[in-house]
């Protein structure tokens, strides 16, 4: 955790703008950067029982098999990214720790595990207007009937690729590549403009 003293989040260039926008803490839409979360990309064959068993035992969660995310009791979660790809998130372990643990456990099994913690950042979006803000740049249907709590999708917000997670009724997490973070955040703020006045 001492790392956080020397780490810098991707939104450093617009921190003051963010603070200005949210100084009045609007209730209809909120945006908070959850920086420095651990992200590890895991690739492997879900048809291999060994692969699935080892990962599930190591992470203490069930690997999701469709557009959803699962959680461990220890602050770790797995987001389905494709038929052979997951994004492992953690608030407890560092990227290198998680990478090493998985790589060692999966020795001998064809897989790839890559620490990408600095490659992504996470925006937590809250409030009753979140869906309206997202609808301005994300073409997917986010209605609760189609996108319930616990679901995950890869899509885009305007021209930035995103992974979107539904955490709660009015809480979404948007995972975006580091270099697109500022653009994506500015587009979100711009889209939310009518709700922040």
């Amino acid at each position: 955790m001492s790392n956080q003293l020397i780490q810098e989040a991707p939104l450093v260039g617009i921190e003051s703008k963010l603070a200005r926008v949210f100084v009045k803490a609007p209730t209809s839409f909120g945006l908070v950067e959850r920086s420095f979360m651990t992200h590890v990309t895991l690739r492997g064959d879900p048809r291999s029982k060994t692969f699935v068993d080892v990962v599930e035992r190591t992470l203490q969660l069930t690997l999701p098999a469709g557009q959803a995310m699962t959680h461990s009791p220890h602050g770790c979660s797995a987001v389905w990214m494709g038929p052979d790809e997951w994004l492992i998130e953690s608030t407890e372990e560092t990227g290198p720790e998680l990478e090493t643990a998985l790589r060692n456990a999966l020795a001998g099994e064809h897989h790839a595990v890559v620490d990408v913690s600095s490659g992504f950042t996470v925006f937590e979006l809250t409030g009753p207007k979140v869906r309206d803000v997202l609808a301005k740049g994300c073409p997917l249907d986010l209605h609760p009937r189609v996108f319930p709590v616990g679901h995950s999708v890869q899509s885009h917000y305007f021209k930035a690729g995103i992974t979107l997670l539904r955490i709660d009724e009015e809480c979404y997490r948007l995972v975006v590549r580091r270099s697109f973070a500022e653009y994506c955040c500015l587009m979100l703020l711009d889209a939310a403009d009518e709700f922040l006045r």
């Binding site: 790839a112 890559v114 620490d115 490659g119 590549r177 580091r178």
Partner: peptide, 11 residues
Amino acid sequence: KVHLTSVTDHW
């Protein structure tokens, strides 16, 4: 048997 991961933003 090969997997690709973009790490442009990480490094």
